[in-house]
Design a protein around this nucleic acid. Sequence first.
DNA 1: TTTATAACAGACCGCCCGGTTTGTTTGCAA
DNA 2: TTGCAAACAAACCGGGCGGTCTGTTATAAA
Lengths: 209, 209
Amino acid sequence: MSLKGEKTRSRILDITKSLVMKKGFAGTSIDDILKEAKLTKGAFFHHFKGKAELAKELVERHAMNDLAMFERFVGEAEAATDDPLRQMILFLEKFEEYISNSEDPSPGCMYAVYTYESMQFEPSVRDFVADTLRRWTSIYVRKYQELIDSYPPKIPVTARQLAELTVSIVEGGLIQQRAYGDVRVTKRQSLQLRNYLFLLFGEPKTKAA
Amino acid sequence: MSLKGEKTRSRILDITKSLVMKKGFAGTSIDDILKEAKLTKGAFFHHFKGKAELAKELVERHAMNDLAMFERFVGEAEAATDDPLRQMILFLEKFEEYISNSEDPSPGCMYAVYTYESMQFEPSVRDFVADTLRRWTSIYVRKYQELIDSYPPKIPVTARQLAELTVSIVEGGLIQQRAYGDVRVTKRQSLQLRNYLFLLFGEPKTKAA
DNA sequence: TTTATAACAGACCGCCCGGTTTGTTTGCAA
DNA sequence: TTGCAAACAAACCGGGCGGTCTGTTATAAA
C-alpha cells in the first residue's frame, strides 16, 4: 500500500473516531464520514470491506494507542521513582492531566461506546473490547500488586479489586463528564481514588527508609 | 384514555426499554418494537407522535421509577437505624443486592445509553438526563452530609465529592458488568466504596454511644 | 514510455427507516 | 340501538442507509 493510500485510510479512521465519539456508531453513517473526509464511496470501499471492518480497525487501533499511552505513563512513573506508592500517585497525576486537558468536545471512552452499542458489532469485536478492558485492568493489577507487596494495606484488598475499581472510577467519571459537559469531573474522581489509596497505604515512605 | 390504551402504551415503553438497553437507541427501530409488541404502525403513532417522543417518555418514566427506588432504599435504611453510617452501609447493601440479582440479560444504565448517544435526542432530553443524574447525585449528597456531620472524616472530603464518586463507581461497574457479562462486577465495586467509607469514617458508633 | 495497479470518483441499487394516510374494529356512553 | 371517539390494522411514501459497479486518474516499477 502506498504512502498516500495509508494516509487516506488513517484520515478516514481519525474522522470516524471523532464522529463515533460524538454521535455513536449506529448514529454515524459512512456518508457522514465521507462528507467530512471529502471522499466518495469509491475511496471508502477501496480501503475497507464495509462498516464492520471499519468498526473493527477503529477499536483495534484505538486500543493499541490507548494501552501504549497507559504503559508510557507507567514507564515514566517507574523512571521517576522506585517507590510503588509514589509511582501510583505519579501515574494518576499524569492521567488526571491528560483527561482534563483534552479539548475533546465529546469526551468519553470508546470501549464504553462499543459496550453500550455492542449489538452493532460482530462477536469477535465484542470479545476484543472485553479483552482490551482486561488488558487495561491488568496494567493496574501489576502496579497495585507491587504496591500491596511493599505497603501492607489497612484493609485486606486484592490488586484486582483495586484495578477494577480504578477502571470503574474512570469510566464513571467520563460518563458524568460527558453528561454535564464538564471536563473536570474525571479528574475529581481520580483525586478521590488517591484519597482511598492514601487511607489504605498511608504516606509514601521517605527515601531514606 | 382507556385502560386498554394505557396498557398498550405501557407495553410499548416496556419493550422499548428492553430493546434500547440491548441494542442502543439508534440501533432500535420502531418496527423492531412493533414486531415484539405484535402491533402495527397505526397503533404506535396513535400513542406517540414519533420516535423522539418515545425517547423522551421512556427516559422520563425510567427516571421517575429509578429515583423512587433509590429514595425507597434510603427510606428503608433510615427506618432501620438513626445512625448515618449504618444507614449508608444499609443503603449500599440494598443497592448491591438489587444490582446483582437482576437477571437482566443486557445490564447497564439508561442514562449512560442516552449520554453516549446524546446526539440522537433533543437538547431538552439531554438536559433532562443531566438533571436526573444531578438529582440522583443529590440523594447521595444529603446522606453523605449527614454522615460527615456526625462522623468526622479522616481526610477532608465534601459530601458532593463522595456522591459523585458513588455515581462513578456504579456507572463504571455497570459498563464492566456489561462488557464482561458478569453480573457481580458492580457489587464488587460497591464493596470497595464501603471500604473507602470505612477508612474515612471508621466503625459505626455503638448504639449505647 | 509503457503498463500494471493502487487510489480514487460517482452513478446506481435494494432495503429499511421514520412517518403518513386511509380504513377498520372496538368499547362505551347516551 | 345508535353514535362516536379511541384503538388499532395495513398499505404506502420519500429519504437515507450500506453496499456495488463501472470508469477515471495518479503512481511507481520495468
